[in-house]
Design a protein around this nucleic acid. Structure first.
Lengths: 222, 222
DNA sequence: GTCTGTCCGATGGTATACCAACATACCATC
DNA sequence: GATGGTATGTTGGTATACCATCGGACAGAC
């Protein structure tokens, strides 16, 4: 028996529970801007749109609420959270600290597989189109945080990214940057490959400082 | 009408929803160590213990799940999250960054009312007994983060503190510190009162470095 | 005795129905 | 036009039912 590949036989039933699917769908919809800030999330309407029962919708909304994407007003119900520059600024500042620190730690512990994973993500960012860039960018940072061993910081950054997701889409698509986005990423990867922690931190901080500027312009233009 | 104090007439019904009460109770119970790590949280049992219906319990568990205090195993149900040093170490590192940064910003923007609020919290820490210390310490940091304008960072720190709450109780109670806890807090407050950002950051970082050491000893002693 | 298959209870996941409290909009009355 | 009542929509909360899964108990076959 032991010379038989168990993976071949494995029946993989989707362990995905209905709630998880509904959560991902709704979160993605909010992040994609399908529900603008301030939109009321009426439970029964969502039941129809998602095709699930009210219990599922309610639990999903509780999760999004603690994630900060939704806030519930007393006697009014859940509403898609609005985003202003005061908040976004704080988010970028926190990301700057956590990502800078992770990049430095990553540079100190990185090995060949890490370099390869970063290069791969970078390639996807370069020639991938539209939303591929979004996923590849996320992957790029995931590699950095994981290699640094900063799993909890990565959780936090992901949650923060959910909040400013609309801005992120805008800044990633911006064409008028002083230095193109992929170029900045490449610098980060290069610093890590050179095992130069200080340079990696600097590269990340520069990247985020610029992203914050772009976000500010976009937000105040609204 | 307008010369009548509306506050006098106001009937303040507790806007607290049942779910919020249940959430606070259960979270407090976990933090207090009433449910040790690994304990199964059986829905129907919690219904009896809390006196609410299963829907409420489920939504509460979803919140605690995204807060990181509870994790749900597939086909097994929710379980109180365990805490190991690898995680706690990351938490203390993140707190060091966020709290250090907040203290520095606070020192640069503080005014007389902030100094007074910090002094008040400090007094409570000094002569308050047992769990008063816990609340007063929280208050102390809340003042710092709020004065710094770092509201989102404060949210994050609070959530992180939930995760390491047991450790926090231990380290706050530790008597064998090189420098007593209140003394360290006083140094932070003094640096802020002197508007010395760098010193405030340093004081916070020292405080947390020591707390992390105490936590490590406590955790590995288990 | 050990292995195998089956059954049952406990549990979580999902869905539905129902009621109460509250807020808003609308409408009739004066 | 202002007042008051009413209708409606929405959330909060509860109860209940059904299904899938898991683990253990039990009985039968080797």
């Amino acid at each position: 028996m032991e010379h038989m590949a168990p993976d071949e036989l494995r029946i993989d039933r989707p362990p995905q529970t209905l709630r998880v699917i509904a959560l991902d769908r709704l979160r993605a919809a909010i992040i994609a801007g399908r529900f603008p800030g301030g939109t009321r999330l009426v439970e029964r309407t969502l039941c129809d749109q998602l095709g699930v029962s009210r219990s599922v919708v309610r639990e999903v909304i509780r999760v999004l609420e603690t994630e900060g994407l939704v806030e519930t007003l007393p006697n009014r119900g859940p509403v898609v959270a609005r985003l202003d520059w005061a908040q976004a600024r704080q988010v970028y500042e926190i990301r700057r600290q956590l990502e800078g620190n992770a990049a430095e730690a990553c540079a100190q512990r990185a090995d060949a597989p890490v370099d390869a994973a970063l290069a791969e993500a970078l390639a996807s960012i370069r020639d991938g189109g539209e939303d591929r860039v979004f996923a590849a960018t996320t992957r790029f940072y995931e590699v950095i945080f994981t290699a640094a061993g900063h799993h909890i910081a990565w959780e936090i950054v992901q949650r923060l990214n959910g909040r400013i997701s609309r801005l992120r889409a805008l800044t990633l698509a911006a064409q008028d940057r002083a230095v193109p986005g992929p170029e900045r990423m490449a610098r980060i990867a290069a610093a890590i490959a050179a095992r130069d922690g200080a340079a990696a931190r600097r590269a990340v901080e520069e990247h985020l400082t610029e992203a914050a500027m772009l976000a500010q312009r976009a937000l105040e233009g609204e």
